[in-house]
Amino acid sequence: MKYKYQFLLLFIPVFLSCEKTDFELSTNSDDFFFIENEGAQMPVWVQGNTNSKKMVILLHGGPGGSSFIFDAFFEAFTRPLEDRYGVVYWEQRSSGTSQGSVDPESLTPEQFEADLSGLLEVLQSQYGMDVAYYLAGISWGGYLGNSWLINSGKQDQIKGWINIVGPHDFKAIANVGRDKLAFYANQQIGYGKEVEAWQEIQEWCASHPTISNTADFLKENQYANQADILMFDSLDMETPPPSLAAQLKFAFDSPFNSNAWLVNLKGIQDSNLIETLFERPLDCSKITIPTLMVGGYFDFVVPAPVLQDQFEQLSATEKSIHILPRSGHGLVGHEATKLVSLMIDFIDF
């Protein structure tokens, strides 16, 4: 009788295993965990060579995008990085496949920054303070990275900052982007290319000489993304469109949840985040750590002149900017090899 319930002890390891963490440095890490903050449960997937003691924290685009998409569909970008470094795929709040009940009021740049600070603390506690952490932001992730470096007071904990088509001033990208759209609309109509689509853009630009509100910004952003596709002939497409099998695998056999992504995106759209960002330019002169900036010559969303302006603001003594000649806003898919090469040069040397 004394030992009647002793068999229950057998189950204890099963329950404890749910809470166990054994994130060890490895040449082929595959660690998965969540960070929870202010109602959001955000997945974090650490892959690749963490044994290198160099980790790249990927800040996805959007707001509302997904880092898991890069892992699944942009292998030319991610695999060479994973071979050399640990890559941290983090799904931001109300983005990608993150979960939780998120108050729309919490969708502020400050809250995203607080989440990133927390993520860095978790990584440091799990993988060590001696690991060199790099931030790599893509588009909105570039803005978030800039903002975090400026405001968190923790930029000394980051070894280097890689900004890929990330803006610092949404009003500037809207207006410079509008001018670029107008220029290329005239040019492409003159060449007789995609005339109907470019005429619509031309007419819209003519009726909107200045963009001063978020409704016009969102429309300009829509046309800018469309221009990326219209200029297809001028772009390298290293990353082919994902196969149906890859898409099905991603949808049904990965941690990703397509329905959750749509709901999360709606959460972003219903919030005031875009309005806030439009009136929140950043002063990048406060960024002092080594910085690599990469843009696309045919990027209409975050045009190269805005990146150049941002670059000149940086106070970092080690800084460089590269505008890839055959890339648009989606340069991670366009000239992935060049981008990765620049990143490796920046991180290793």
Partner: peptide
């Protein structure tokens, strides 16, 4: 959630 959860409000370690 079937992976470890770090609650940033409590502990990041």
């Amino acid at each position: 959630l079937n992976a470890p959860v770090f609650d940033l409000a409590n502990s990041t370690s």
